[in-house]
Simulated assay, not measured.
Amino acid sequence: MRHTPHYLLEDRDEVRRLVRENPWATIVSHVPDHGIVASHYPFLLDEEASTGDEIVLLSHVGRPDEQLHRLGESEVLVIVQGPHGYVSPSWYAPGDNIPTWNHVTTHLYGVPEILDDAENFRVLAHLTDHFERLVGESARSLALDEEYSRRVARGTVGLRLRVTRIDARRKLSQNKPAEVVDRIIDELEGDGPYAHDGLAREMRRVHDPRRS
């Protein structure tokens, strides 16, 4: 990503929040036989391990993606994309005619650790329970038919990624005066073609936490 100092996101707690709120991520590898390959899977923080400066991710891939990526052999990139959207120059002062795209994005790097079958199933169960917790009384669990769930789990490979480096950006109109920022937020909260409540909330976190 473009290295613009005032857009750097170096707060690890904010990176963790971004992962928690945006679990659908892209995993990218460079392998000799295929060049660059990418897949898309849900990633969760290993909350117990992700303390201090350390960030640890848990996920799985469906076979044979573990072979396609050659997981465990070299570094991979996991891209987590937060709220993003078009910012029209019509929201700026007259004479400022260059549009932009606001976003919150982090690139997380590390060498995946392949989980054994037992731990992979625990991660899959945790992943299911994590998302099903919002469903209420009709929530499902792998434990409802564990024998069948374990058979299905054999088609997946679990992984743990201890993040060794981070490249994160939070580009939210920090280069604009306060009155323009307020106008952008108002437009994002409106009913126009580029309205985006999630992006407006992210801008409030940066520019005026009292409004978030």
Rank of each mutant, 00 (worst) to 15 (best):
T4P: 01
T4V: 15
P5Q: 05
P5H: 04
H6T: 05
H6M: 05
Y7S: 11
Y7R: 14
L8N: 10
L8E: 14
L9F: 02
E10K: 12
D11H: 10
R12E: 11
D13P: 01
V15D: 04
R17S: 10
R17K: 07
P23T: 11
T26D: 12
I27G: 02
H30W: 06
H30D: 06
H30K: 07
G35S: 12
G35T: 10
A38K: 11
L44A: 13
L44M: 15
L44G: 10
L45A: 12
E47F: 08
E47H: 09
A49N: 06
G52Q: 03
S59E: 05
E66Q: 12
E66W: 00
Q67D: 15
L68I: 12
L68Q: 04
H69C: 06
L71P: 04
G72K: 04
S74P: 03
I79V: 15
I79H: 03
Q81V: 12
P83S: 06
H84G: 09
V87L: 11
Y92P: 05
D96C: 02
T100I: 13
V104N: 09
V104S: 11
T106K: 06
H107W: 14
Y109D: 08
I114H: 03
L115N: 04
L115Q: 07
D117A: 15
A118V: 09
F121L: 04
R122T: 10
R122Q: 15
V123E: 05
L124W: 00
L124C: 01
L124T: 00
H126Q: 13
H126I: 00
H130R: 13
E132T: 08
E132Y: 12
G136S: 13
E137F: 10
A139F: 10
A143I: 00
E147R: 03
R150S: 00
V152P: 00
R154K: 14
L161F: 05
L161A: 04
R165Y: 01
I166Q: 06
D167K: 05
R169N: 13
L172Q: 09
Q174R: 07
N175K: 02
E179T: 06
E179R: 07
E179Y: 08
E179M: 03
V180T: 15
D182N: 10
D182S: 12
R183G: 02
I184A: 01
E187T: 01
L188Q: 07
L188G: 06
H196P: 01
D197L: 15
D197N: 05
D197R: 15
L199V: 04
A200F: 09
E202M: 03
D208C: 04
D208F: 08
